[in-house]
């Protein structure tokens, strides 16, 4: 996935879309105040400069789907592991809730169900049937909408063809009004995402930790830019 920070307006449509798509529970005011809110993608807000010359910067942070993810090997039950396609899989039924993965994750993009989630009826009718509803004691995180990826693959297989670039879109990418996000296959050098990830505006979050994140951020004024200038 590639996220263009210069296009992001911080509207949080991606956050809302993610909640709707992935059956993410809203924990309520009290629990949110105790820092237990769950947003698989969040928009981090940073301020630059002194008042009144303040600039706001937005950075949407989903799970970075690291190539060498610190969250994976620490899980004692393989609930957190690397899929063949290169995602950081999170197998809910295998999770026993050690929360070790969440500690190891440098991006804090893993979320724990401290209580059983609750939906007021009839809001439960809007739950996505393609995504399981997690219960108490389970760790969850952004899956890059793996249900959409699987559905796309099944569809392509039924039509006896390969998945086309841009055919599969996670909910956040689909909902972004400024099209700041691009999703694609990084192992295919021809895909739009691969092309953008090679851009000289490309940076990766906490790249120095050696996690090889698969989310690329595009921004102006990065040191890459200065180097090339």
């Amino acid at each position: 996935m590639v996220i263009d920070l210069d296009r992001c307006t911080g509207c949080e449509a991606c956050v809302v879309a993610c909640h709707a798509e992935n059956n993410i529970a809203t924990v309520g005011e009290d629990q949110a105040a105790r820092a237990r809110a769950m947003h698989w993608i969040r928009v981090e807000r940073y301020y630059e400069g002194e008042f009144p010359n303040v600039k706001t910067k937005f950075m949407p942070v989903p799970c970075q789907q690291c190539g060498a993810a610190p969250c994976e090997p620490v899980c004692p039950t393989f609930a957190s592991y690397h899929t063949i396609e290169g995602l950081n899989g999170q197998v809910y039924n295998r999770c026993i809730g050690t929360r070790y993965c969440a500690n190891a994750c440098p991006y804090n993009t893993r979320f724990f169900n401290f209580y059983n989630p609750v939906w007021d009826k009839p809001l439960d009718l809007q739950l996505n049937p393609d995504v399981s509803v997690r219960s108490e004691g389970i760790m969850e995180k952004c899956t890059f909408c793996v249900q959409r990826i699987k559905a796309g693959e099944v569809q392509a297989a039924a039509e006896k063809r390969l998945v086309k670039d841009g055919e599969i879109q996670p909910a956040c990418v689909q909902s972004c009004p400024t099209q700041a996000m691009v999703f694609g296959d990084l192992s295919d050098p021809e895909s739009e995402a691969s092309r953008l990830a090679r851009s000289n505006r490309a940076t990766r979050l906490l790249d120095e930790l050696g996690t090889f994140p698969k989310v690329t951020y595009l921004q102006r004024g990065s040191w890459h830019d200065n180097e090339n200038a």
Binding site: E72, F78, Y81, H82, I84
Partner: peptide
Amino acid sequence: AYPEPLITGGMPLVA
């Protein structure tokens, strides 16, 4: 043991 390699953190299977 599992038929498909369960890779974690880019480590070799028998780390």
